[in-house]
Design a protein around this nucleic acid. Sequence first.
DNA 1: CACCAGGATGTTT
DNA 2: AAACATCATGGT
Length: 293
Amino acid sequence: MHSITLRPDQPFDLDLTLSCGQVFRWERGETGVWSGIVGDSQIRISQQGRTLMFEGADTRFIRTYFQLDEDLPGIISSIDRDPLVHAAISRCRGLRIVRQPAWECLASYIIATCANIPGIRRRISLLCRCFGDRITGECGEWYTFPSAEAIAASEACRISECRLGYRAPYLKETARVIAEDRGWEARIPGLCYDDARRDLMRLKGVGRKVADCVLLFAFGKMEAFPVDVWIQRILQTRYPGGESLRTYDQCSRFGRSHYGRYAGYAQEYLFCDRAALTGESREDQVPVSQPER
DNA sequence: CACCAGGATGTTT
DNA sequence: AAACATCATGGT
């Protein structure tokens, strides 16, 4: 059992971070211990105040995965630009964006299109049982996220077991391309946001939204501002003049210009707080800035 | 049983 | 460039 003691200037909320819908393979046990599979390992981690206790990974891995050394207070103050995101920030204190493995993130968000989070988790779980490696450890057995090669080599009848629906051919085709293009993961970080996005969007099943999610969650391109139906609804209904934000690009450009270099973080706080921000209660509606033309 | 979900793609205006 | 149909599945 290892542990990390967080400094006062390192806000972090494990529950929020793992339950907000950015990652799909973590489960919370009765005792508050989270169990998840990253790479080949099963990690178990819990939090009590400023102390993180974990096993299955070393300290450096945990710091990197949860981005504990990112200056969250600085990021928060840079995106805290209107009452709406301010309310989301205050309700989601300690939420951090996880640094996900690139291929798993890409494949997961291809599968995630037009589905709700429980359904996404189910499909990914099936995919791992079907094509991942089975690993036996001290506390049980688990399945790794399948490699691009494993999915590319799979048969159609086995993919259909995973209930991916119309997404199956997208995933398989992209797996084939990625399996043949082993330089992609090293290439993306060197590209600027626009070029990296264009590069990802060559892949089947990867449009603007999936590309933005991969750039944000796997490559740390914090200006990426993914727009799903929740984000669009929040922007349209809670910002004055928001009705004019009709297309994906209008929403995403508004996010980037309004929230700045860490727009992706603003997006994640709004998404995490979506239930409150799309509900009937409107105590915190006093938005401030107009979307740009 | 309707309606909707971390959308993408191809076609039509 | 913007609007539309279509895609397959499951959650609520």
